[in-house]
Nucleic acid binder design. Structure first.
Length: 501
RNA sequence: UCCCCGAUAGCUCAAUCGGCAGAGCGAGCGGCUGUUAACCGCUAGGUUCUAGGUUCGAAUCCUAGUCGGGGAGCCA
């Protein structure tokens, strides 16, 4: 009777005979020795099987086990520098649970369409495994942070009778013959709850029917929304800052190796310390029109053009190698690198095409417009840490945001822009607590007043200054992991025109 | 809603000016006693997205459509 172990605990079993329950991640075999890289959900372990009297009974059948075959493998745990991870299993027995055939995801590169259709299998790949582990930690830290800071969890409804935000982005569903909408935010409900519990938060999926096919958009994404009674705009910003630092620290603490594996620059994350930068929208607008912004983009253009020339040279060289008559191995590597370089070239070309437009947008930025994606990128790249942009023009923002009493053209809101151009990860505000002002805004925006009767009650009975924010889990994960596309930050992405699997 | 790009073997990609449909991986078989995306040999594998058109001849050119990728607007 041997111990059943998991790969993450092998270190504790050095010298022991243990059984691993897992799947074949990769395998290499010769006539007399086979290396099976086993994946068991907790990690990877190289299992070495030498042909001998002991293994004769199963060696020939198992040496060529196909990728993703399920197996129980028993052996002695030994330390070996040649093994990935430093430990390996000297196999004494193998029990095939299920022999797989023709597993579609191979160790070679695949296209994104193919991988998304096989999302249910793509999970098993190392990169995806790391990302979803980090996601689980981020979600855990979100809950832990708010629970430990005296926030009360309030679950808000998914079926909502009216719009929380722009009504063009609502998913309409039939509710016993009545049209209702999938929630875009739980905010109005947590506002009600914070008057009962002082500090509350909701955490769940939200739905937006935005017709956006970009690397930053999902139609179903997860958002945490804390709401605090007796809070000023400054209090809410302080809370957001502390919270974001806490999430970053936790991910650094628990996932440093995974972040490095994903290619994330860990030093950049280590710089995420309080205080973050705080600028007003008006100042941001000035920055966009400033010589610094222009210089940044112009330098960017030069850098991108140099990169493009470099890539052209590289691609030419790689193609020559790939088509030459060198060793097959070298040709393969060159061909794979050429594909990667071509992808990067296409991306750089697109960026170069966009820069003049971005320059124009920034230089011609007028007070009153909302900040666009490229504007946010410029602002965040002019800073080395996350930036809070506050006090946006009233007419560009939602009706519930508190009017600045000192300047009624703006509201007391903020966005938090992640550094390195990852864009907006938080939106928040102080909420309008005066019934009269709120009613005027609802009427001005032609919103259905009846639907908001209950919400207006909050201003009739013990209305106090309060505020909160919403943090998008997937966008935060993109930033933390350095992901290029949001679809990798959620187990099963829901995007415009995509709902399988 | 708008703009740009793409679709060739199971996968990733080639195919020069419009002239015989190719390679690697994966799969199958064989070989190899320490591999790290293993290696070596052999085998099988094609309605070139769809429908029209131009042409002696179309993967390649034209028109329309479908699907996918990226971006704008909008947003977390």
């Amino acid at each position: 009777m041997t111990t059943i172990s998991t790969i993450d605990k092998l270190r504790e079993h050095l010298g022991d005979t243990v059984t691993l329950q897992g799947w074949v991640h990769q395998s290499r075999a010769s006539g007399k020795v086979a290396f099976i890289l086993v994946r068991d959900g907790t990690g990877l372990c190289q299992c070495v099987m030498e042909k001998s009297d002991q293994t004769a009974g199963f060696f020939d059948e198992t040496r060529r086990l196909a990728q993703e075959s399920a197996l129980e493998v028993t052996g002695v745990v030994v330390a070996d520098a040649r093994a990935p991870g430093g430990f390996e299993l000297q196999v004494t027995n193998v029990c095939v649970v299920h022999a797989a055939r023709d597993y579609p995801i191979t160790p070679k590169p695949h296209g994104i369409e193919f991988l998304m259709k096989l999302r249910h299998l793509w999970f098993r790949s190392q990169r995806q495994w790391h990302i979803l582990r980090i996601r689980a930690t981020v979600v855990d830290e979100i809950r832990r942070y708010f629970n430990d800071h005296d926030y009360v969890l309030i679950d808000t409804p998914i079926f909502a009778p009216a719009a929380g935000e722009g009504s063009q982005t609502l998913f309409k569903v039939d509710y016993f013959g009545e049209p209702v909408y999938l929630a875009q935010t739980g905010q109005l409900y947590v506002e009600a709850a914070c008057m009962a519990h002082r500090k509350v938060y909701c955490f769940g999926p939200t739905f937006r029917a935005e017709k956006s096919k970009t690397r930053r958009h999902l139609t179903e994404f997860w958002m945490v929304e804390p709401e605090i009674a007796y809070a000023s705009l400054g209090d809410v910003i302080d809370a957001a800052e502390d919270f974001v630092c806490s999430v970053v620290q936790r991910v650094l603490r628990d996932h440093r190796p995974q972040l490095i594996e994903l290619g994330r620059n860990v030093e950049e994350l280590e710089r995420i310390q309080k205080p973050f930068h705080r600028i007003t929208y008006t100042r941001a607008a000035e920055m966009l029109r400033s010589p610094q912004a222009k210089a940044l983009l112009e330098q960017d253009l030069v850098a991108k053009q140099e990169r493009l020339a470099e890539l052209d040279r590289r691609i030419e060289k790689l193609e020559a190698v790939a088509k030459g008559d060198g060793k097959q191995w070298d040709k393969d590597v060159a061909a794979a690198e050429a594909i990667e370089a071509r992808e990067e070239r296409a991306e750089v070309q697109e960026q170069i095409r966009n820069i003049p437009h971005h320059l124009e947008l920034a230089a011609g930025f007028e007070w009153g417009s909302d900040l666009g994606g490229s504007d946010e990128t410029i602002i965040s790249r002019l800073h080395d840490k996350p930036v809070f942009v506050t006090h946006y023009p009233k007419h560009a923002k939602a009706f519930y945001m508190r009017e600045d009493r000192a300047d009624e053209r703006v509201v007391e809101n903020f966005d938090l822009l992640a550094p390195q151009g990852f864009g907006e990860i938080i939106g928040g505000s102080a909420r309008e607590e005066e019934l009269g002002r709120l009613l005027a805004r609802i009427r001005h925006d032609h919103l259905p007043e009846d639907d908001y009767e209950w919400y207006l009650d909050l201003r009739r009975y013990g209305s106090v200054p309060h505020g909160g924010f919403g943090l998008g889990v997937e966008r935060t994960l993109c930033w933390l992991c350095g992901l290029k596309h949001i679809r990798e930050a959620i187990p099963f992405a829901r995007m415009m025109g995509k709902i399988y699997p």
